[in-house]
Design a protein around this nucleic acid. Structure first.
Lengths: 341, 341
DNA sequence: CGATTTTTGATGTACGTAAATCAAAAATTT
DNA sequence: AAATTTTTGATTTACGTACATCAAAAATCG
């Protein structure tokens, strides 16, 4: 049987009330007594029953998710997953609020973060735009002892407690190797399509991609990065133009969202041009394109996992509990047409 | 505020005791009253507070894991993960027993399963050997209302409640496409190395692999399957022999365990022979070989996830609760040297 | 030393559910 | 209608923790 507060009291030779004062850091305990109790806790290996404690406290975790607006499929899916989490709110004792801010808009994000100061909040999760102002706002919340988790895209040098997202450098490297190997020893040009170089995840993917390309596939030449701003129309125009101008493009890496436009452009040149294509984010569009053979591989991060992980981490951090690092690692999924879920 | 049993009682116009009788299926309630209470439960959307219920019941979940002996790295890792789970036992209210049985030994497995009959057990997880006798033994436990989960390898046509493992046909197909694409349009022989065709996961991987090879890579010829019985020594001999006899082998798919022998054989022919190799299970050996470039891709199932998922499913099933299918899907991990965890 | 402050103990209530007991009411049988 | 059985209600205790209150004991101060 697992030890309880009564066992600590008996072991330390003090009353239940004193144990309670020590456990919950209430005042009115002499240092010697406190140490005696803490020793007993360690010695008998007491672990607080969080379920019982939460029951007694009637605890709920007010959580805030700050997510960008915009109609690309990935962010839409992310918002949907947060919404799903709200449906489990009562059984998970969470109270989730979703705050939407314009994508890549630093002042709005900072304002949204600052609005949370002083509020009774058990945790904040945000898709970070990587700017010093955002870092400062996050650090203000952290200094108020509010757990902060970055989601999908991380924040450089900030004091955020946790990052719930994939390793984007590794993702870029993986994309490069897949593309390079799939192209056999062929020689030609590679086009990289990004959303915006203002977000850290896109920059890191490019960094990893470029590194492996340079190291291992010298016959493949990287063309200047196209920025599609995650917008299907713009992306389609950019890609169509690139494909018609440069006949030696044999591979494409799309590291952002807005792949609808890319797929449309590819279909327009379909049987004549043979292209090897690796993209990010599994959506209904990329899935269909993968099945048809328009694209060759999809790298994906599971938004549902990220949201659930962020919630677990915020709750644990709010309770001062350790997180199981291994369980919270967000993995890079690689989908070929054969292992689609 | 979330509704409680008191709210049901008030809504249904009955006493707390009657609500309790209905909720816990105790006798002594007229049909009409029962229906009245159930209507009230549905109407106000009552959800039992599992934490409070478990606290009141002092519930623990006695779980049994039946895993094969044998010293291959994967099963060793699996046993380790179960062991880790026992360390979390007190906070998860589980009481986990590990039963080891000789690998591929049907009578032993059946005996281990039958020994559980009539015992107070909240769930059984087993690595199934796919035989009718095992199926029958599992079905006996299921008919005793004991939750049963297959782990890693599934059991054909059985009544097990859940399978905690990857889709092995998809894994085989994925391996084929990776190998085929990595080989560009080259022509040559492919060797498949299995542990044993007696386990369903190996059979399914081969099935998926063969299908994609036949459909999509006609220039690659499959040689007869080698059975290494997951034994490093035997595997090394088999592979070395095959490589020296057939000079046109250009690719290897190892779908079982015991890759130590394979890696040794590959290193022996290293710089001269250029081989593209895809294997299963990430272990210290396969990881090192991947980093060095001796092998090209590792397909993996995360044993830790499988064990944790199995536990969640057994607990939920024991409580008659629904499982979140999406969360319990075990994914196929694809590792290149760039995205190792 | 007595007076004052600080520390500790004893006790009770609460959280939401489970489970038991006993009495009362209702339904069923004779 | 009485006797019997079944159903329902009322009440209590328990799970492990949190939190509040009040009294008692110990420590510190003047």
């Amino acid at each position: 049987m697992r030890p309880t507060v009564h066992d600590i009291a008996a072991a330390a030779g003090v009353s239940l009330a004193t144990v309670d004062r020590v456990l919950n850091q209430r005042p009115g305990v002499r240092l010697v007594t406190r140490e005696k109790v803490e020793a007993a806790i360690r010695q008998i290996g007491y672990i607080r029953d969080v379920a019982a404690a939460n029951l007694a406290k009637g605890r709920v975790y007010p959580l805030v998710f700050i997510v960008p607006t915009g109609d690309n499929s990935f962010m839409h899916g992310l918002r949907l997953e947060v919404h799903h989490a709200t449906l489990r709110a009562s059984i998970e004792r969470t109270d989730i609020r979703i705050v939407e801010v314009p994508a890549f808009d630093v002042p709005s994000l900072v304002a949204a973060l600052d609005a949370l100061q002083g509020q009774n909040i058990a945790g904040v999760a945000l898709v970070a735009t990587d700017a010093p102002e955002v870092r400062a706002a996050v650090d203000r919340l952290v200094s108020e002892r509010i757990p902060v988790v970055t989601l999908v895209s991380d924040l450089t040098d900030s004091a955020r407690h946790h990052y719930a997202g994939i390793d984007n450098i590794a993702a870029g490297r993986t994309a490069a190797r897949l593309l390079g190997r799939f192209l056999g020893g062929r020689e030609g040009d590679i086009t990289v399509l990004a959303g915006s170089m203002l977000v850290r995840d896109h920059r890191e993917r490019l960094q990893g991609f470029s590194a492996v390309m340079a190291e291992e596939f010298p016959k493949l030449r990287l063309l200047p990065v196209l920025e599609g701003r995650d917008d299907p129309e713009r992306t389609k125009t950019l890609i169509s133009k690139a494909l018609s101008e440069r006949k030696d493009i044999i591979g494409i890496y799309s590291l952002g969202a807005g792949n609808r436009g890319l797929i449309a452009a590819l279909k327009a040149v379909r049987p004549e041009r043979e292209l090897t294509v690796v993209v990010h984010e599994l959506t209904q569009h990329t899935r269909a394109a993968l099945v048809e053979g328009t694209i060759d591989a999809v790298l994906n991060q599971d938004a549902g996992h990220e949201v659930r992980s962020a919630i677990r981490v915020m709750k644990a951090t709010a309770d001062g509990q350790a997180v199981i690092a291994d369980q919270e690692r967000i993995r890079l999924d690689i989908f070929l047409k054969d292992n689609l879920p």
